[in-house]
């Protein structure tokens, strides 16, 4: 009899533990910046989280959105304003400026050369690893609209989706780690 009560208590304890509300092992990150240095930091954090078993979800908004453009893709039927934004904003992660010491593009070239020499993973490699680790990328629909970006000019990435603020907030509410890359 007592053995059966003990086992029932153990079972109940297990169920209670499952019901307990609390932050999930999850990283909710807003990637607001479209700077090379900050994008590298964001992607190192995301892949690191993936490696740790912490589920990473990245929300790309505003300037960050431009980093997800694919330089080899073309979008048609843009209005003048969208075309202008398209010309002025970097076409993808390999054309991002540095937030400091940009020096008309010399800075990014120097950083990339330095990273290569130190055998550090490039942004291309970091995105590839992120895809392997299941890092989710969600793009702010309003930023796409504001910058005049179209879905057909966005990179091919296996875990990519479009969303609004509610999706971020719903994820962030249960995420144990929240970061804003400005």
């Amino acid at each position: 009899m007592s053995a059966s009560i003990e086992s029932q208590v153990a079972e109940l304890r297990e169920q209670m533990a499952g019901l307990r509300p609390g932050p999930e092992s999850k990283l909710a990150m807003i990637v607001f910046s479209g700077s090379l240095d900050k994008m590298i930091a964001a992607m190192i954090l995301a892949t690191g989280a993936g490696a740790m078993g912490i589920k990473p979800i990245l929300f790309f908004t505003f300037w960050g959105t431009a980093a997800l453009r694919d330089a080899s893709k073309r979008a048609r039927g843009k209005d003048l304003m969208s075309k202008m934004f398209g010309w002025m904003l970097p076409k993808g992660r390999n054309r991002l400026p540095l937030s400091q010491m940009n020096m008309l593009g010399m800075g990014p070239a120097m950083i990339k050369g330095l990273m290569k020499r130190k055998n550090a993973a490039s942004l291309d490699q970091l995105f590839e690893i992120a895809a392997q680790l299941g890092v989710e990328i969600k793009i702010c629909e309003m930023s796409m609209d504001l910058m005049g970006f179209q879905r057909e000019e966005i990179i091919d990435y296996p875990h990519l989706d479009y969303c609004g603020v509610a999706t971020y907030l719903a994820e962030a509410q249960t995420a144990s780690i929240q970061l804003f890359i400005s």
Binding site: I44, G50, A51, M52, G53, N119, A121, I129
Partner: peptide, 14 residues
């Protein structure tokens, strides 16, 4: 050897 952050941790996880 020769791999800097975050690669060692990424690799061991895989």
């Amino acid at each position: 050897k020769g791999l800097p952050c975050p690669m060692p941790v990424v690799k061991i996880s895989q």
